[in-house]
């Protein structure tokens, strides 16, 4: 394992993704990725008394599901890496309470899935740990409660707003075994282009995605055409268009192989406006659709660039602009 530019890491031992699991909420289970989900929720409360508890339970199911999918027992997992959107990452840490294994709590807002994969790959590549579980989830109703308004408030959403995904996913990384390989990763910088509109997350995060993609391509000496899919996390329709523009100005042309998880997850534009968002967005799409296609050979090389807006309601109310971050992970199909 070595770094080429203080951000990009190339993995010599190529950690494998030997198991994965994804759960989608009721709305996500009707979207274009429905056939790739491992489990579809019919009831987004999961029989819990609050949405925070539901999100926690969702994460527990995802982690158990991924361990099971890899044909392993809980004891085989050395560490759990994960995070979520709620304050003090309560969903992940409270879910980890149930497992009794090493827990490394992470937060990069909606970029947490890629962050956990990149960090997990570093740990496994160096054989600090033999097997780690990377898990992230989000819940529409708990996110609305924390960031926006009560669910039953009769307000209108602006056209640039996005829809927090109810769902999540987990991947099991291992130093040996069969499955897609993580070959390189780029940890992002915090980038802020001065956008203050909380209802326009795509515009806040697009510069961070641009920065990370440029750095990753330079650091790995690769071109856009080398990838079968370059998928950003949750830029949404508007954010993706901005990213295409920004990269074009830098001389990088994204083609047909570019997509955004926030655009892939829903098909009803009227209700979700610019598309999906939330830490569960890239986690769900990656652990269902993308890994499936990597396994069956449709994709040979994929760059997942999960994007996060690092705001809180306090910073917004105090008039701060919204910083963004993007972490990239390159996954290649393999036996």
């Amino acid at each position: 394992m070595f770094s080429t530019n203080k951000q990009t890491v190339i993995f010599n031992n190529k950690p494998r993704i030997i198991g994965n699991f994804s759960i989608g909420g009721p709305l996500e289970s009707k979207g274009p990725i429905k056939d790739y989900l491992h489990y579809k929720l019919e009831d987004d409360t999961l029989n819990e008394s609050s949405f925070e508890k539901a999100e926690r339970k969702l994460l527990e199911h995802i982690i158990f599901g991924a361990i099971d999918n890899a044909n392993l027992q809980l004891d085989d997992i050395d560490a759990l890496l994960g995070g979520d959107l709620l304050n003090q990452i309560i969903s992940s840490s409270f879910a980890a309470r149930k497992f009794g294994i090493t827990f490394i709590g992470l937060y990069s807002a909606c970029a947490t899935m890629a962050e956990s994969l990149a960090l997990g790959a570093c740990l496994v590549d160096r054989q600090v740990f033999k097997k780690v579980c990377c898990a992230t989830a989000s819940h529409f109703s708990s996110a609305e409660r924390q960031y926006r308004f009560p669910l039953e408030l009769g307000n209108q959403r602006p056209p640039t707003s996005q829809w927090t995904v109810t769902g999540g996913g987990a991947s099991i990384l291992s130093h040996e075994g069969k499955g897609p390989m993580i070959t390189s990763a780029t940890f992002g910088k915090v980038v802020d282009f001065g956008i203050k509109d909380v209802n326009n997350m795509g515009a806040c995060m697009a510069p961070a995605a641009m920065d990370t993609i440029t750095t990753h391509l330079q650091g790995t000496n690769s071109k856009v055409e080398d990838y079968d899919l370059i998928a950003t996390g949750d830029l949404g329709k508007l954010g993706s268009e901005i990213l295409v523009d920004l990269l074009e100005r830098k001389g990088i042309k994204l083609g047909q192989n570019y997509s955004d998880c926030g655009n892939l997850i829903y098909n009803k534009r009227e209700k979700v406006f610019m598309g999906g968002s939330g830490s569960g967005c890239s986690a769900t799409v990656f652990n269902s659709y993308i890994l499936h296609k990597l396994r069956n050979g449709d994709f040979k090389k994929v760059l997942l660039v999960a994007t996060g807006a690092l705001l809180s309601t306090t910073t917004t109310q105090q008039g701060d602009s919204i910083p963004g971050i993007a972490h990239a992970v390159c996954i290649e199909g393999g036996e």
């Binding site: 326009n200 515009a203 508007l238 523009d245």
Partner: peptide, 8 residues
């Protein structure tokens, strides 16, 4: 640039 791009 963003302002010009935002749907009204």
């Amino acid at each position: 640039y963003v302002e010009a791009k935002v749907p009204k």
